[in-house]
Amino acid sequence: MNEGWLALIQQALSLLFSLDPEVWSIISVSFAVSFAALAITLLPSMVLGFLLAFTRFPGRWLVTNLIQTLQSIPTVVIGLLVYLLLTRMGPLGDLKWLFTQKGMILGQMLICAPVLVAMSQAAFTSVDRRAWETSRTLGAPKLSAIWAVCRELKVPLLLAIVAAFSRILTEIGCSMMVGGNIAGVTRNIPTAIALETSKGDFAQAIALGLVLLVLALILNFALGTLRGKAEPRSH
């Protein structure tokens, strides 16, 4: 049994290090889709988080709670929603995005935006008002003052980005439904792991799982060092 395990892990590693084209195409689909979804949603989500934290407008309470709710909707449900939107009879059927990377990106955007908005809103709400006031009174124009505040919040804001990115990189429900797990096109790490495992091809599944594991380790340790530097404040 142990030897079987060892053999599997050896096979998995050799798949990764021999740059097996199939494995690496799956990895690149995953990253391309998730990076695109993150890149498109990042700035608008942070701006919305900023506005929700600092401005008062009618409906603000409703939006805040809606976003909290969206965060906890299972990804299959979002997958279902996007599927219905993109299906040939659906309102966006003419785009022909179903079972394409574009469709997957759309789904992942809907998954990562609420996380980004909610976490950046929490970060901005936690900021010391004096950071903004000090920057402004020292002559900073509004944009520079916003930048100064973001700089003070770099740890919680990076945390938001990492949380959002790991959520979409590892989600399977939406990718499976909207992408369809088509080899070389929409097959990403989570859908491939599910498929290979069901076929009994554990080596590839382990290889892909290792990629996610290593990435999670790197991101969390990087954040850990950052957070370690940020000391609790008192005044």
Partner: peptide
Amino acid sequence: GKALYLHQHPYLF
């Protein structure tokens, strides 16, 4: 930004 205000407990970046 015209009159510089110093907080009772200064904020440092």
